[in-house]
């Protein structure tokens, strides 16, 4: 290992750029998958079987297969299909392939968390809303979902911590995120320092996230210290 100022200075641009890509994958995935999980969750508890079936199969596929396999499918697999069936729009670049895969994959996980949250709300809440004249949709959005927030924050937070580390998988299809930057530098210089610096980068991100979550939990913890 070599932590001399000169060497870190040499490594810095590539690693910083990699960390930027890592953060970008992380943020884009969250921005897309956090909202996408909601319709999937609502679909999977729908009283109509077509959306229920579709959403449950979707969740099963994305949670039941390796994320790396999904990544290969959306990058290489679709690329091959694009050529075979002459459907060029199926061919995704590396980065979009990562975002699409991660967003779909994480939406499945978030959907399950949302669904469990919604189903943990007492039936009495639906009944009270019904007697006050709420439709089912109004009940869901005004009464049920707001009360799931406090319950879903911890599992959602856990999932996002996992996402930070999963971003490193993007390296397998050649996206220049933090781990790839570190590995390239390490191979070039036959030196372990880049790995240590990359580890420090991941730790810094997860540390900041932990702080954010503590804030969130405090903010949403107020009303429901006990079951209603």
């Amino acid at each position: 290992m070599n932590l001399s100022r000169e060497y870190v200075f040499v490594l810095w641009p590539a690693l910083a750029q990699g960390a930027g890509q890592t953060l970008l994958i992380f943020l884009l995935t969250l921005i897309l998958s956090l909202p996408l999980g909601l319709p999937v969750a609502l679909g999977s508890i729908s009283r109509l079987w077509p959306p229920r079936m579709f959403c449950r199969v979707y969740v099963w596929l994305f949670r039941g297969t390796p994320l790396m396999l999904q990544l290969f499918f959306f990058y290489y697999g679709l690329g091959i299909m694009a050529g075979q069936y002459d459907l060029p729009f199926l061919r995704l670049d590396r980065f979009p392939a990562v975002i699409v895969t991660f967003a779909l994959n994480y939406a499945a996980y978030f959907a399950e968390i949302y669904r469990a949250g919604i189903q943990s709300i007492d039936r009495g809440q639906y009944e009270a809303a019904k007697t006050l004249g709420f439709t089912r949709t109004q009940t869901m959005f005004a009464i049920i979902i707001p009360q799931t927030l406090r319950r879903i924050i911890p599992p959602v937070c856990n999932e996002t911590i996992t996402l930070v580390k999963d971003t490193a998988l993007a390296t397998v299809i050649g996206v220049a995120e933090l781990l790839k930057a570190a590995r390239d530098a390490s191979n070039r210089d036959t030196n372990t320092t880049p790995y240590f610096l990359a580890a420090a980068g991941y730790l810094a991100i997860t540390f900041v996230l932990t702080l954010v979550y503590q804030k969130l939990e405090k903010r949403f913890g107020r009303h429901e210290r006990e079951a209603i």
Partner: peptide
């Protein structure tokens, strides 16, 4: 008809005032 339940079923994310106003404002 309005119902009062054995287990209250108040809306936990709303204050008392909001519990009372939500139906008049949002529904009526």
């Amino acid at each position: 008809t309005a119902m009062v339940f054995q287990h209250f079923n108040l809306f936990g994310h709303l204050t008392c005032l909001e519990n009372v106003t939500i139906a008049p404002i949002r529904i009526k």
